[in-house]
C-alpha cells in the first residue's frame, strides 16, 4: 500500500510454478470497495498525472495523458461505476491497462496489495448485483473479511460509450 506506486513492479516468483491453482491480482480501492485486476493485464501504475481533458467525450473519460510517448486515455472509474466523486481527500492513482492495442488508465483512489488468490475462493457474479457492476466484473473472490470484485478489463473499457 505504498503511495509512491510509480515504481511498483511485479516479478514472477518461483511460487508461480507450483501455484497453478491460483491467480495474482492487484487490488485497487474505490470508495472503500476493493476491486481486483488480473496482474498480467496491468502495464503500469501511475501517480497523479497531468491529464488533458477531452471535450465532448463521455463523462467517464477523464482525459488523455502521455505515458512515455504513448497517448493513454484516462477513465474515471468512480464515474464509470456511478459512485459519488470523492472530494480530493485521497490521492488519485492510475492503473494502466491495454485493450485492443490501446492504453487506458483507470483512475482510482488507491492501489492496494498484490494478492495471490486461490481459484477455489472464486465465485461468479451474484445475479442481484447492480447490473452496471455485473456488466464489468467477471466474478468475486471471498477474502477473509471482505469481498473482492474482479474487474473485467476488456468489458470495462469497451462499454464506455458516447
Amino acid at each position: 500500500m505504498s503511495a509512491d506506486a510509480n515504481t511498483l513492479s511485479y516479478e514472477e516468483s518461483a511460487e508461480d510454478q507450483h501455484n497453478a491453482q491460483s491467480k495474482e491480482f492487484l487490488t485497487i480501492i474505490i470508495a472503500g470497495q476493493r476491486f481486483g485486476i488480473p496482474i498480467l493485464q496491468i502495464q503500469d501504475v501511475l501517480g497523479e498525472q497531468r491529464v488533458t481533458k477531452i471535450p465532448l467525450a463521455p463523462p467517464e473519460v477523464a482525459g488523455s495523458l502521455n505515458l512515455r510517448g504513448r497517448v493513454v486515455t484516462a477513465i474515471d472509474v468512480r464515474r464509470r461505476l456511478e459512485i459519488e466523486p470523492c472530494n480530493g481527500v485521497e490521492s488519485e492513482m492510475g492503473v494502466v491497462v491495454e485493450h485492443e492495442n490501446e492504453l487506458y488508465s483507470l483512475i482510482i483512489d488507491k492501489v492496494g496489495d498484490v494478492l495471490r488468490l486461490k481459484n477455489e475462493n472464486f465465485e461468479s457474479t451474484p445475479p442481484t448485483l447492480d447490473p452496471l457492476w455485473r456488466d464489468i466484473s467477471s466474478g468475486i473472490y471471498r477474502l477473509k473479511d471482505e469481498l473482492l470484485v474482479i474487474l473485467d478489463v476488456p468489458k470495462f473499457v469497451s462499454t464506455v460509450h458516447l
Binding site: 497523479e48 498525472q49 497531468r50 491529464v51 488533458t52 481533458k53 463523462p59 477523464a62 482525459g63 484516462a74 474515471d76 468512480r78 464515474r79 466523486p85 470523492c86 472530494n87 480530493g88 488519485e92 483512475i107
Partner: peptide, 20 residues
C-alpha cells in the same frame, strides 16, 4: 498546462453529464 486530474475531480458539478 492542463489541470491535473485532482482539480477536475474536485469540481465535479462542472464536469458531469447533467452539467453539460
Amino acid at each position: 498546462a492542463p489541470i491535473p486530474v485532482k482539480d477536475e475531480i474536485s469540481t465535479p458539478n462542472e464536469d458531469g453529464v447533467p452539467a453539460s
